[in-house]
Simulated assay, not measured.
Amino acid sequence: MTKADWEDVFEAKELLGLGERATLGEIKRSYRNKCKANHPDIVGDDRAKGDLMRKLTRAYDVLLKHSNQFKIPLVPPDGEVLDPEDWWMDRFGQDPLWGKNRKK
């Protein structure tokens, strides 16, 4: 993931009040609880609450995009953030089909 992706994940976890690791169920529970507490239909027609609801929904979407049914890290591993090309080479660099070391 790129630095921008990690920043989005970090903002989302902070907005939803999650720790460094979260299950999909914890993410959903936090999102639903925050929505119940801040939904404009419940607390009244408040523009700030509407903006907060949009931010909560975006945070939820960001976290769902990067998660599965298991606990996932919500901080970069060892502070290391890879560029997309570095990420590709880290995973497939030695692959004879995709890596730089392929035979012609």
Rank of each mutant, 00 (worst) to 15 (best):
R54C: 04
G17A: 12
M53A: 13
E7V: 10
Y60D: 04
D78R: 15
L24V: 06
P76Y: 02
M1G: 03
M89V: 04
R91Y: 02
L16M: 08
P40K: 10
F10N: 08
G79K: 15
N101C: 11
P96K: 01
R91L: 03
Y31N: 02
G44W: 10
R47C: 05
E14Q: 11
P96C: 01
K100M: 07
A59C: 15
G50K: 13
E85V: 04
R29I: 06
F10D: 08
D61Y: 11
S30Q: 10
K13Y: 09
E11G: 05
E14R: 12
A12Q: 04
R102P: 01
Y60S: 07
C35G: 05
G50V: 15
T57R: 13
K34W: 10
R29H: 07
N68F: 13
D8K: 15
W6I: 02
P77Q: 01
L18F: 10
D78K: 14
E7S: 13
Y60P: 15
K103L: 04
A59W: 09
W87M: 03
G17R: 13
A22T: 03
T57W: 08
F92C: 01
M89Y: 04
W6C: 00
N68I: 00
I42E: 13
N38T: 14
L24K: 07
L56R: 07
E85L: 05
K36W: 12
K36N: 09
H39A: 06
I42L: 11
H39E: 02
I27P: 06
K100W: 05
T57S: 07
F70S: 12
E26Q: 14
P96G: 00
K71N: 04
K55N: 13
K103D: 03
D5H: 14
R54D: 09
M53D: 01
D83P: 03
D61E: 13
P73F: 14
E20D: 14
E14V: 14
E85A: 07
G93A: 01
L52V: 09
K36Y: 13
R54L: 10
A59P: 15
D51F: 09
L74H: 06
P73W: 14
L63Q: 00
I27M: 08
G50S: 15
S30I: 13
P96S: 02
P76V: 05
K100G: 07
E80N: 14
A22D: 04
D83C: 13
Y31Q: 03
L52E: 03
D95G: 00
L52T: 01
P76D: 01
D5S: 10
R58L: 14
A59T: 15
P77I: 01
P84C: 02
G93W: 02
